[in-house]
Amino acid sequence: MALRPFFLSILGLLVLPLAASAQSLGDVGTFSITASPQYPRPFEQVTITPLSGQLDITNATMTVTVNKKQTYKGNAAPVGVPVGAVGTLTTVTVTLTSNGTSSTRSLSFRPQDLSLIVEPLASTPVLYPGKPAVPLGGSVRIVAVADLRSTSGKALDPSQLSYNWTVDEARLSVDSGIGRDTILVASPAQYRSRTVSLIVTSQDGSAVSGNSLTLTDESPVVRVYERDPLLGILFDRAIVNTFSIPSAEKTLFVAPYALPSNGTSPRLQWFLNGSAAQTGPVITLRPTGTGGGSASLSIVASVGDSATATANLSLTFGAPKGGLGIFGL
């Protein structure tokens, strides 16, 4: 199932059966038809497929009309037909003719608009322009934005619509109901996925729309950046593996990504040469003595006992002794 990156805007479609229903339009005598997808976007094409019943469709001629305008005539086969704008009615009629016998089935579509906004509760730096990833061991808030129209085209109040949430095919009765447009979902287990589905209907059942999405989590990471005294934090380049300290001091800043942030901030612990140095997002390194040297620096970001991320750096500082003669002597 295709997903849109972190903001999902999938528009639903109301299928009004004239001689059948939408998901499985049923055998109504000589042949049946199905429509896919069940909830396409307005102006999207719906695939109409004839299914064999008493009529031999392999030797039949199929005619398709959309709002009384013929759009297809030929062999019986799946055919794409366009639907209209949000709240407008589109009527599709399918006629099969075989051995001089004709049979007709019709469907009506009234598109509705349903968007899902995914809000992972995960750590990011302040003023981070991107969207957090789904955190391992955390949770995700999903907000539904519904724009359903009545048969007269009037917009229906979203707070008066009925929201039916399903997670991994299990209906969430406690989180469903009138006006329940927000849900908090636990992140899937590592290397797994989680499917969230929603059906929104008007209280009289005249308007309906649906949407679903799949959540996959990402392992947390930490990134280390240099904090320049004049330019601030240099977010355009993360420090990886090695870092040189040619001057008297350097200040580093750490940013955790995709750690759960359910009301708590990640704990940030720095280690210098394997020993705990300090906590917090910033550390200032000041080499002492003369000559050059090296050290190891690590940062561990954690939330509770389950979610952790680590970054390790090899530090070099100062300048080695020696002249510019042969062999560096």
Rank of each mutant, 00 (worst) to 15 (best):
F6M: 12
I10T: 13
I10Q: 14
L11V: 10
P17T: 04
P17M: 04
P17L: 06
A19K: 09
T34F: 09
T34E: 12
Y39F: 14
I48M: 15
P50A: 10
S52Y: 05
G53C: 11
G53L: 09
Q54C: 02
D56M: 07
D56S: 13
A60L: 08
M62K: 09
T63F: 00
K69C: 00
T71M: 15
G74D: 10
N75I: 12
A76Q: 04
P78K: 06
V79C: 04
G80C: 00
V83L: 14
V86M: 06
V86P: 13
T88R: 12
T90E: 08
S98L: 00
N99Q: 13
G100P: 07
G100F: 05
S103Q: 12
T104Y: 10
T104L: 02
R105K: 11
L107P: 00
R110H: 01
I117S: 14
I117W: 07
V118T: 13
P125H: 03
P125Q: 04
K131T: 14
V140T: 12
V143T: 15
L148C: 12
R149H: 12
K154T: 13
K154A: 15
A155M: 07
S159Q: 13
L161Y: 09
N164T: 09
A170Y: 02
R171Q: 15
G177H: 03
D181S: 15
I183M: 09
V196E: 02
V200C: 02
T201W: 02
S206I: 06
A207V: 13
V208S: 14
S209L: 02
N211F: 03
L213T: 02
T214L: 01
V221Q: 08
V221D: 06
V222I: 10
V222A: 13
V224G: 06
P229E: 08
P229T: 08
I233H: 03
D236K: 10
T242Q: 14
T242M: 06
I245P: 03
I245R: 02
I245N: 08
P246R: 09
S247F: 14
A248G: 03
V254H: 05
P256G: 07
Y257N: 08
A258K: 01
P260K: 01
P260R: 01
S261K: 13
Q269G: 00
F271R: 10
L272W: 07
G274I: 10
S275R: 15
A277M: 10
T279M: 05
I283R: 03
T288C: 00
G289F: 08
G291S: 10
G293T: 11
V300G: 00
V300K: 05
A301E: 01
D305Y: 01
A307D: 02
A307C: 02
T316M: 07
G318L: 10
G318K: 06
G325L: 11
I326Q: 11
I326C: 05
L329Q: 13
